[in-house]
Design a protein around this nucleic acid. Structure first.
Lengths: 354, 354
DNA sequence: GTGAAAGCGCTAACAC
DNA sequence: GTGTTAGCGCTTTCAC
């Protein structure tokens, strides 16, 4: 046994077996080993078996870098997300990772926190080219020119939250999200409805905030309610940001009786600010969020649910099917959203005594 | 200008520039380009400048796969975590990613959901070898044998939450965590204190749950309270699991007056179950968690805080410093924890009428 | 200070 | 069905 162990033992460290070691031990050429290992045709069954057996014995694995260099494919993909530490993105990461690992792809995650990062990623000299076979952009806008560049460099792309004229995308109807949330508040009799969205000067230019805001306005318009600019605040998609925004709103001369937060995390912040100010939810303030965060049910938050982890999984599948040869053009897969009414929203009570 | 553009234009697709293109355009050899690009010595200043200029013009970037094959280093690391979609792990991912990207390393995330996954990762033929330069194991136990194997394959390793006798680790004192939480409850006069931990047959064999449970018992012992096995439940580190566990506990003939949940997410579930059962927190039930989740302040949860994102960042730094040549042996960096008292805990009220 | 050339470990023509 | 061999694009001796 030990005698035909072809692992060299250099300075006490056993070298990892290469394809040549396997070829030698199996008494065939490297080409045959390569074919056998990858299940390619034109290998006799007995040869295939012998190679497999030897490979197992030598614990052989094709060196990914060598394979990559020879084939031009890396079997790895990138997932670009802003704000890695938010519930939404962590769910997407989770969903995508599960699919990638099941399909044998490595997933590199990249936090893209500003336009500089974003540009560096798409840039001509970007390390992304030749490092991964494809990339999923989550809530990161990709311009037409950038899309062309990516396509040109033969990168497969899927976008989530935005769409391009070149790649498949997974989106929700963000205008509808706003309408659903605000429509619900209006149906409860609210008229002073605030909105907490993303940053004004969003480095990434989220289209998400704008669209949800458009839905907010559409719902108000439809009910002949004039939007008060003072009721628009920015919460940065975090609990803290939502809390700060709500504090500002509550300090207004004429505070809102309801608030639409564009994410559950900001809504949580709003709930916190309300409690700190001694304002009862939902009696004195109705709050509605977006996402249906794990914890939303715990704090009884009314929200617009979207299937977040599923976004990640679907995006990964779309990307991988491109990589496996399927030729796909631009597309827009619109995922469903759903209003989930809990107890953070209630009918508007007229005058409130403070 | 266009005339010395050495990019070939094959079938309308411009090939990405290689080191040879740069060498040709700069009128030097590839060896010189290689040296110049990497800031190695023995390159004339003027040559260096010329190469840099040409490289920029041609948008040249060394092909990572080729570099990898030639050097044996991939400038990428893996982060192995169970339960990618939990707050704790997403924070760790976020912290680690920030450091890795700042240092120019790619970070591959791998969800390790069971012992099978875990073993596949550490296994002799694992795709991990030669794919990454190092790996961070977060709350994934690594046996002595496995550690030796990893070391032997020349992988840099850092563990978080567990420690090995071979690699640097980042831990917290989980026994102390349990003592802190349960000590707090005892100091409030509670004696029927339940505990919600991880799964009994934990596929990953978390040492975390055991240690925290040990702290629970230590605190009870110190107060001469006999632990009631009926008060130990399993919550699977999720909101849902915590809720289910709490429901079971509340259904006991003699339900607890306080509960120690080993994560904030399970504590949230406990809060939910209590509310659903019409039990007031903290009047009828005190709840304490672990982590200090973003949302904990929102639901006013008393908790044992640990600096989670910092774990990720530190682990990444430790790993990268190993990769940059620093020889590090086994170590145990114990990070601080801190009891944060909020309003989910209150003095024990004697008999409760139901 | 610079260049020539031998790898790194694999894949893919092409020949047999 | 199998083997030979020329790359893939870089790094790294070793000469000069």
């Amino acid at each position: 046994m030990a005698q035909d162990e072809p692992d060299d033992d250099i300075a006490g460290v056993r070298r990892r077996a290469t394809i040549e070691d396997v070829a030698a031990a199996a008494g065939v050429s490297v080409a045959t080993v390569s074919r056998a290992m990858r299940g390619l045709p034109n290998v006799a069954f007995s040869t295939r078996e012998r190679v497999a057996e030897v490979a197992t014995r030598l614990a052989y694995r094709a060196d990914p870098a060598a394979t990559r260099l020879a084939t031009g494919r890396s079997r790895s993909v990138a997932l670009a997300v802003p704000l890695l530490n938010s519930w939404y993105f962590s769910q997407v990461v989770s969903g995508a990772e599960a699919v990638c690992s099941a399909e044998g792809y490595d997933m590199i995650v990249m936090g893209v926190t500003g336009d500089e990062d974003r540009r560096a990623l798409v840039d001509e000299t970007s390390s992304i080219h030749r490092r991964v076979d494809g990339i999923i952009f989550v809530d990161i806008p990709v311009s037409s020119d950038e899309a062309e560049l990516l396509d040109h460099h033969d990168l497969a792309v899927v976008t989530v939250g935005n769409s391009t004229d070149r790649f498949p995308s997974l989106v929700i109807d963000d205008v509808h999200v706003g309408e659903l949330a605000v429509g619900h508040l209006i149906s409860l009799g609210h008229t002073r409805i605030a909105v907490i969205g993303g940053q004004r000067i969003d480095p990434l230019g989220f289209h998400v905030s704008d669209s949800r805001r458009a839905g907010y306005h559409a719902a108000l318009d439809r009910a002949d309610i004039v939007a008060d600019p003072a009721l628009a605040a920015l919460g940065n998609y975090s609990v803290c940001g939502g809390r700060d925004a709500m504090q500002t709103l509550l300090a207004l001369d004429e505070p809102p009786t309801a608030v639409f937060a564009m994410s559950d995390e900001m809504a949580f912040g709003a709930l916190l600010a309300a409690r700190e100010a001694g304002i009862e939810v939902p009696d004195e303030l109705s709050v509605v969020g977006v996402d249906d965060h794990d914890v939303s049910v715990v704090v009884d938050l009314t929200t617009v649910r979207q299937p977040v982890a599923d976004h990640g999984a679907r995006a990964a599948r779309l990307l991988i099917s491109q990589l496996e040869g399927e030729r796909v053009g631009p597309s827009r897969d619109e995922r469903p959203v759903e209003l989930v009414v809990r107890r953070s929203t209630a009918p508007c009570r007229p005058a409130r005594v403070r």
